[in-house]
């Protein structure tokens, strides 16, 4: 194995030397779909505190980032929707937790811009609302646009379906969501994958996240993938 290998045996070793109190982290996923389950557990076990976490949602009371809220490891969240987590609502309303709401598309674009080296962008989203308060605005052709800035983090935790030892990633279905942008928006992106393969196994034409963005990678284990709202339809009677 070359000394430049990106491959680690598990989540705990992949976080080693990276995690400390007060970090800003990005964590991929939409609801509980496509979240880095292994890394969140290892982060909880690391005991790191005063974390700022950028994630579209905050998990549920008993899964995902909700686990880190329970242990009070998170100081601040930057999210678009946290309605599935009562502990979150309680901590926020009591002033224990700081919260910055971003419209979902603005959040996605801020992360994309951060990763692409773009300082900021003007968007129609949020003009005339609380979101625009204190932000620079510009009126173009009678329409108001709000300046939103690019977002970067110290560490990004992402989850992919397949990855190779070079860090190339492929996501599956709607588990892609915020993961690709987050992978690009920090100097230390750690990816957990369900299948870790040798280079040449994945079709280069199908790679969603090129390996340049991924610094560490490991094969995750014991995926739970809880379903938040199980909805089904009946089969027509035979």
């Amino acid at each position: 194995m070359s000394s430049a290998t990106k491959v680690f045996p598990d989540a705990a070793s992949a976080l080693k030397g990276v995690i400390r109190d007060g970090l800003t982290l990005m964590s991929g996923g939409f609801g509980l779909c496509g979240i880095p389950e292994n890394l969140i557990l290892a982060l909880r076990d690391s005991g790191a505190k005063n974390l700022t976490v950028v994630s579209n949602n905050a998990g549920t009371d008993n899964f995902g980032l909700g686990l880190l809220l329970k242990t009070r490891q998170i100081k601040k969240m930057i999210s678009s929707y946290v309605g599935e987590n009562q502990e979150f609502e309680r901590q926020y309303l009591s002033g224990e937790l700081q919260l910055e709401f971003n419209p979902q598309g603005t959040l996605a674009e801020r992360i994309r811009a951060g990763g692409a080296g773009i300082f900021g962008f003007y968007t129609r989203t949020g003009a005339g609302t609380l979101v625009a308060e204190g932000k620079e605005t510009r009126v173009v052709n009678g329409e108001t646009f709000v300046l939103e800035t690019g977002l970067v983090a110290d560490v990004s935790l992402v989850k992919a379906w397949k990855g190779d030892t070079e860090g190339n990633l492929i996501y599956r279905k709607t588990a892609r969501n915020f993961n690709p942008m987050m992978a690009s928006a920090s100097p230390m992106t750690i990816a957990e994958v369900e299948e870790l393969v040798e280079p040449g196994t994945l079709d280069p034409d199908q790679i969603h996240t090129p390996g340049i963005f991924v610094k560490r990678i490991f094969r995750g284990v014991n995926y739970v993938k809880p379903i938040e709202n199980r909805t089904v339809r009946k089969r027509a009677a035979a």
Binding site: S79, S80, E89, F101, G105, T125, V131
Partner: peptide
């Protein structure tokens, strides 16, 4: 109610 705007503003 503190749930967030999700994608509604966009």
């Amino acid at each position: 109610m503190v749930k967030g705007m999700g994608g509604a503003m966009d």
